[in-house]
Design a protein around this nucleic acid. Sequence first.
RNA 1: GGGCGAUUAGCUCAGUGGGAGAGCACUACAUUGACAUUGUAGGGGUCACUGGUUCAAUCCCAGUAUCGCCCA
Length: 1019
Amino acid sequence: MLDKSFDPKEAEARIYKMWEDSGAFKPRAAKPTDTKDDNFSIVIPPPNVTGSLHMGHALNNTIMDILIRFNRMKGKAVLWQPGMDHAGIATQMVVERKLAAEDKFRKNMSREDFLNHVWAWKEESGGIIEQQLRRLGSSCDWSRSKFTLGASPNADAEEKAAQQNMGDGVTKAFVEMYEAGLIYRDKRLVNWDPHFQTAISDLEVETKTVDGHYWHLRYPLADGVTYEHPITDEEGNVTGHETRGYVVVATSRPETMLGDTGVAVHPDDERYAALVGKEIILPLVNRRVPIIADDYADPEKGSGAVKITPAHDFNDYEVGKRTGHELISILDDRGHILPLDIIPEEFHGLFSVKARKLVVAQFDEAGLLTETEKLKIEQPVGDRSGVVIEPMLTDQWFVDAEKMAEQAMAKVNDGSTKFVPENWKKTYDHWMANIQPWCISRQLWWGHQIPAWLLGSGGGKAARWTNAEETQQHRDEDAEFEVIWDKLSNLPVVTADAEQVPSLLLPILNNVDEIALVETIEKTGVLVEVKVKTKLGQALQFTFHQDPDVLDTWFSSGLWPFSTLGWPENTEELARFYPTSVLVTAFDIIFFWVARMMMQGLHFMKDENGEGIVPFDDVYIHALVLDEAGKKMSKSIGNTLDPLDLIDGVTSDVLVEKRTRGLKNPDKAPQIAKATRKAYPDGFEPYGADALRFTLASQAGQGRNIRLSVERIAGYRNFGTKLWSAASFGQMNGCAPVAGFDPSTATLPVNKWIISETAKTAMEISRCIDTYRFNDAADAAYKFTWDTFCAWYLELSKPLLSGEDGTEKDETRATFAWVLDQILKLLHPFMPFITEDLWAKVAEGRDSNLITAEWPTYGDKLVDADAVAELEWLQTLITNIRSVRADMNIPPSKKAPLLLCADTLDPRLDTYAPQLSPMARVEHVELASAVPDNALQTVVDGVQYAIPLAGLIDMDAERKRLAKEIEKAQKEIEQIDRKLGNEAFVAKAPEKVVILQKERRAGYAAEVETLQTALDGLG
RNA sequence: GGGCGAUUAGCUCAGUGGGAGAGCACUACAUUGACAUUGUAGGGGUCACUGGUUCAAUCCCAGUAUCGCCCA
């Protein structure tokens, strides 16, 4: 006996453990006959090690698990590769915050000590998200889980061996890309995050619109120069001129004027033509800077003159480069004004915003502030820190992304990788076509330290001399030292192996001097000391430090599709599972991740012809999960839903507490609490993972966001209960799977019909999953289970199952059990827990688990068109009888005969009398030559039926009902006639369409005729 | 400013060049028989608007409006 309903709390953990213990999550053994199509693989988008499960993960993993389970059941060798991302900035931030709470600060620690703290934290909480993914039912091969940063220094030997390639791969990738000229070190303007004091990439910068000001500043001209500046009215007409000894520039960041190197005007701007080449005396700092002509200045904007601060503005940087300006950096790493000689002392050390106020005040005081304009300005902020990003001139490492993007675009264009839905290709193309150099160095500690050695300060220059001879000798040596120093300090030494540093130095040095000997004298950790023997025979000592910076996390994430498979080792998994079958992700990381994987995959993975191999055949981009109001879920808005709360249930008190805890803006708490209580006054019931998964799948329409509806989750939980109860019915009626049952041998039309429908549904679901139409697949499974199987077949089978023992009963029992088995299989990818539980419970001693059962692929051969037609007729008949009875308010308890108004009795009516009785409340069936008075009438396939119900029918209402039906049908006929009467339609429309319309017309005409007869018969 | 997308039943959303759909909600009826986490039946839509293409447009094209997102 089955319990009353499925208990997710009890079953989920038990079943998940059973799966994992059974080894079902590991790919099956390779077969000699396996082709590429027999291997199916997905790499998980690695969640941040700091992360916890959110709805986006739930959707993402549900989709992947559907694909994985489906393909596993189809008999493919399936690998779902899990792992986690070290998430440089995010993790370092979390750990620093945690340490700060204990009054410990990174600045006061050694790098090693700090990293020990991070690793300890990772060990402690890094596994949480993997546990949470298990709760969803994700069938990843956890034994292969990888971490982008490799193993912890304290890990055991086994773990170290398993993760070894993760770090080695990153180093190898960096070195090879450097050697190929795809990575370079450069001093450039980068996005600087003053909070984390690191460079970040363009993608990590968000633009926010905030209230700001435009300050209009007067810059006096040097040497008493004046010019005639036109005065214009509101419509822009010149009404006169005034003599000016200044130009006006407008800026939202006046403090940058401390680093101005000029003022630009447009070359065609007649107003300022005479000023080009003249100079300005910058107020406050009293520096002379030139007025230059450059296209960047827009005559339409403001005064038409713009200040140029090449070291603190990306546009100005370009102008500065074009016009050969020097670069003046005025900010330190924290965004404070540097104590430069050229900057007045009162600004030294001021935070940029404070400096801004002081600059404005001083301009105002000097009468040089002409206007303060309030307006919205676009402000760049760090996506992690939330602080204003400063363009800063620093030495960083870059990937020449433009070069790599070419092939990455070409491979999508030629279809090697397909985007689903297709329109995301445009987004990808657009970004790739406009790609900028990718800044990959970060001034952090948590990450892959860059495998490059840089010349450190304090080399072997310490020798001092006492007499003239020595002095001269040392001067010579010193000169040699300078030559070597200059040469080396321009070039980082990039190598995976510190031992190689000296040998890499040789070719560099040989070009400039006759260096005889380079040897390592000491190598400790990140420090390499080399001895260089000069032509004077002197041994000079140089110290190289490993670059303290680490790589952008996405650099290692870009290697994920092959690093997780063992690269740079040549592993079996790499051969079997690369390229991966599909990448499943949300659109927001197409640039961050998908694009980088394409570029790096194509660079490192080559076929026998040296042609790059794409990392995945398909990229399926799914929606974002929004709240019920269509807003992005966010902690600060307090509208997040924790998938585990929906699985396990939660009270509204706990929900409110979770949503209001740790808010950036605690003032919002009461508002969030109120909204939460209003939306979910009773919290959530424990709906279970299956219901959540099914809801997400059913809403995963392509190219749409998902507004997660809790009501729908409840609906799909009910669906599970429905399935459970149908299984329970089967069990009570002896419908156990029959070994060796061949569905094609069924004889009863009702069984042949449900078998046909099963086969059709299986084809439909397969097709939908194969084409990533998860909502359609879920719908098809839902409809078949609830409507076709439970509502129709189950009711139709009741008379057979409760009837006399015999072959018909046996066949029906076997069919019922077979169909239920197919349903469990078809639903398994969507609802793995309840289906696996039922699989075991509806049959004793199965020899396999559902997770590895064979997917139904019967094709058309089980479809019996005659049986389908017969049962469709029966369903129409039953539906029509129910409908007319309901229209006339005939209570279901009142049974009535069914009269067939024809010459001969349709034998089918006899056959299905046992079904018609309970389902259509038919007492018995008989032939009638005429419709009696006081009867309801209906038409099926042009045949008239009557249901005599003397005394129960309001004949007036029946007349109205019939008239209404006739009218309805006639309207259809009119519409069709209009079409058929149109010569152009008959001439130009495809014959199929014309025939279809004619058939439809005939059908309606027959109906009208019969209904009219019925109506006339009522008098 | 550039780009992408959306607009279909009260709500949330499918869908298609030729018959307007689902779930929820709503209305009526039902209640010992798998299931009330239920059953049966029903009502409800100018498919945003304006033009065009077509024999035929909710669907294709153009424009307008509104909303959303991405990039600058």
